[in-house]
Design a protein around this nucleic acid. Structure first.
Length: 224
DNA sequence: CCCTGATTCGC
DNA sequence: GCGAATCAGG
């Protein structure tokens, strides 16, 4: 498989959208997780919540490729770590609701960011007991986005139609003919519209009162 | 041992 | 440029 523009675009969006390399590789098909990571780096994408952390139980193709051969010398590895131009707060990401063991309650996004709100059974916004204010306070500073000037959100929002103005919630699976993105107007300060923010940012419910189906953006069961 | 992303380096 | 092999860490 080669890296066509579309495949690259998919890679970019999924990568930026928080999908793991495995998921991306899985969706793209024909490429390994390593290929995705390698390509991502070559494209200039990198880091994000990456170093090495968080364990999200997900099925992933295994390709350890054991290599009995001698190990490499592993020369000194310079790690410049460009930490220059500091983007303020990174945009919140979907924290895989279905994460394995309960970790911590969703980390508060930070100063300026709204409280975490989820959508209740009827579609109403669920808030904390003491929270009465609107769940959509001022938008925090966000990372710059190439902003694709493609306001044509008429039919389907394609990968290339994405911008920081429209909801990037994926509909369907990349690669499918009708794969597209939500495209609704975003909840200011978020990468998703209000509805999908409710999906992406699940409040930590009381233990035992948690409900089963928090569909994942990618790789999960088909949700549409 | 599972997973994650990062990096190297032969192709 | 590509990606397997490898590293490094939770």
């Amino acid at each position: 498989m080669s890296w066509t523009d579309e495949r690259i675009a998919t890679l970019k969006k999924m990568w930026e959208g928080g999908a793991t390399a495995s998921q991306i590789a899985d969706e793209l098909g024909g490429v390994s997780r390593n290929a995705v990571i390698g390509k991502a780096h070559r494209l200039g994408l990198k880091s994000r919540p990456s170093p090495v952390k968080a364990n999200e139980p997900k099925k992933a193709d295994k390709a350890p490729a054991p290599k009995p051969a001698a190990k490499k010398p592993v020369p000194p590895r310079p790690a410049p770590k460009a930490a220059d131009s500091a983007p303020a707060a990174a945009p919140p990401r979907p924290a895989s609701p279905a994460a394995g063991g309960q970790s911590q309650p969703l980390p508060n996004p930070g100063p300026g960011l709204p409280k975490i709100v989820s959508v209740g059974p009827g579609g109403f916004l669920r808030q904390g007991p003491g929270d009465q204010q609107a769940p959509i306070p001022p938008a925090p500073p966000r990372r710059l986005v190439p902003a694709k000037p493609s306001p044509e959100i008429a039919d389907k929002t394609s990968l290339l139609d994405l911008s920081d103005k429209v909801c990037r919630w994926p509909m369907g699976h990349p690669g499918e003919p009708d794969f597209h993105f939500c495209g609704e107007a975003v909840n200011p300060g978020f990468p998703y519209c209000v509805e999908h923010c409710g999906r992406a940012y699940q409040a930590q419910l009381p233990r035992g009162a948690r409900r089963p189906p928090p569909p994942l953006p990618f790789g999960g069961p088909r949700v549409r």
